[in-house]
Write a protein that binds this DNA or RNA. Structure first.
Length: 499
RNA sequence: CGGGACGUGGCGCAGUCCGGUAGCGCGCCUGAAUGGGGUUCAGGAGGUCGCGGGUUCGAAUCCCGCCGUCCCGACCA
């Protein structure tokens, strides 16, 4: 029974709730949704499972695109654009491919008011439309390697969806390359995996573990799938990028042949690889806190916000002038916003920009003008006392970029530390494994027998799955000779609960 | 597709049991003061109550049907 007093308490509580995010420690999922909303990254749409990427969220994606696109171009790739629709029969040419994607296909059956002779599949990935076309472009070994990338939207009909992490439609880039030898294709696959890792570390400050997927977890139609697995703040893994060596599977299915140096004909060796707007979700879950979004400076659409403070009209004039001048000074090298709105008081602005993840706020008030300084406030800082630092006017142009660099490095550092603190190596006892998973989880390195049924059982018991067979950089010095199922271990794997 | 909840101004909800002038908070607009961490006061705009049918003098409210969304499961970048 609820008394009147209780009802009032509840009411007051929920009003306060409006302004406070659900704490990360209390409900990670609710916290995540809150951060996305508060930062105005995305919103829901009238269509189930689809989302609207709002300007601030899209600006982050654009910064990611710029960095990645530069890396692809620097390694010889060219952008192109292939159609959204592919004939249903094309998808069916590669047996594993069609089987893998069948459950999540969206099909267009009508166009122009008439039923189509052959239904069109909305691309869930573009191999099936790209290879018939690239086949025409490739005649001789002189055309190889052919290195193509496209930025596009794709559709996969998912049952459960979450903003950025899983939606029916999402944005990504997909690279498609053709090579003369298996070795070349393999080199390309690993080159891209390395670029992804570098991007995630240097730009996102989200250090992934890289490795190869098990046979049954590969991309549908690939010989080998490599992945970047990043650890989120709830210790769950996020598959953040994949790179596939497709062997000659698609070349055979789509008859992509070239003439070799000695006049023979052979199928090309191909690769495909992609990262998506899911990275934005990963960024949120890697760094953000109970105040809202935290962005690494390299991917912050606004790196510095200037907030003026005044009382009298005279102060207002002088402070606005100083703010505008500072904006102009910093604007060349940095992405700066001067918040001169006079409809909000400074405190309200602080909350707004912190919620949106702006790395540095510069406050300018009458006291600062007097002392010929500005007050720089960091969005996050290892040392709480160092959060607010006065900077003399003359040092601003040097100090602010330096502070941004320091913050970028500190974010990577703390993400790395968190990953190491929550990684467990040499685990061979299943009870120990289970207690790690139930006690907060993490990345668990174990020996593995190599049987799919073994993973299925562990998944049923604990929800954890094999993420990857770790690359050299992440492999343990010593691996137990026993799998957690008790059987003999064939190789090392990394387990985690995953998104 | 199974289990659960819910559709009422932009957002979050109350009102539905027991039919009788459509309400509250946030946000928004106007004005004044305020301004170094979510400011206050005063005034104001905004809703065919998801859709269709039925019962009734009268339906947000009762009945029937449909549609949609969210949460939990099986599937997944």
């Amino acid at each position: 029974m609820m008394t009147l007093a209780c009802a009032k308490e509840t009411e007051r509580y929920s009003m306060a709730e409006d302004k406070v995010l659900t704490p990360r420690s209390e409900d990670f999922s609710a916290w995540y949704n809150g951060v996305v909303q508060r930062a105005e990254l995305a919103g829901y749409s009238p269509v189930r499972g689809c989302m609207v990427i709002r300007p601030h969220g899209y600006a982050i994606w654009e910064l990611m695109q710029q960095a990645l696109d530069g890396m692809f171009k620097a390694t010889g790739h060219q952008n192109a654009y292939f159609p959204l629709f592919l004939p249903q029969s094309f998808l069916q040419k590669e047996a594993e491919h069609v089987e893998g994607f069948a459950p999540e296909i969206a099909l267009v059956t009508h166009g122009g008011g008439k039923e189509l002779e052959e239904p069109l599949v909305i691309r869930p990935t573009s191999e099936a439309i790209i290879w018939p076309i690239m086949a025409d472009w490739i005649q001789s070994y002189r055309d190889l390697p052919m290195l193509i990338n496209q930025w596009a939207n794709i559709v996969r009909w998912e049952m459960r969806t979450r903003p950025f992490l899983r939606t029916l439609e999402f944005l990504w880039q997909e690279g498609h390359t053709a090579h003369a030898t298996w070795d070349d294709a393999q080199r390309e696959t690993l080159l891209i995996l390395g670029l992804y890792r570098q991007f995630m570390e240097e730009y996102m400050a989200m250090p992934p573990v890289t490795g190869i997927k098990t046979e049954w977890d590969k991309f549908a139609g690939a010989d080998r799938t490599y992945a970047c697995e990043a650890m989120m703040q709830d210790n769950w893994a996020l598959q953040a990028g994949t790179s596939h060596n497709l062997g000659q599977n698609f070349a055979r299915a789509f008859d992509v042949k070239y003439q070799t140096e000695d006049g023979e004909h052979d199928y090309v060796w191909s690769t495909s690889w992609g990262v998506s707007t899911r990275l934005v979700g990963g960024l949120v879950m890697t760094h953000s806190d109970d105040t809202g979004l935290v962005l690494p400076p390299k991917l912050a659409p606004i790196q510095v916000v200037i907030v003026p403070i005044w009382k009298s009209d005279d102060e207002k004039t002088r402070v606005l002038e100083a703010g505008a001048r500072l904006e102009k000074t910093l604007n060349g090298d940095l992405r700066v916003r001067f918040d001169d709105r006079d409809t909000l008081n400074p405190g309200a602005k602080y909350y707004e920009w912190e919620g949106k993840g702006v790395p540095i706020r510069i406050e300018i008030g009458p006291k600062d003008l007097e002392k010929k300084q500005v007050m720089a406030v960091l969005r996050v800082s290892e040392d709480p006392k160092a959060r607010k630092t006065p900077i003399p006017d003359g040092e601003v142009t040097a100090r602010i970029p330096a502070l941004l660099d320091e913050m970028q490095a500190a974010l990577l550092e703390s993400a790395l530390r968190r990953r190491e603190e929550n990684s467990y190596r040499g685990v061979s006892d299943y009870d120990e494994f289970k207690s790690i998973i139930s006690g907060g989880g993490g990345f668990i390195h174990t020996g593995y027998c190599g049987a799919e049924e073994c993973e299925t059982k562990v998944k049923d018991d604990t929800k954890a799955t094999v993420r990857v067979i770790p690359d050299e950089d992440f492999a343990s010095d010593e691996v137990p000779d026993k799998c957690i199922c008790g059987g003999p271990a064939e190789y090392e794997v990394v387990w985690a609960r995953a998104y």
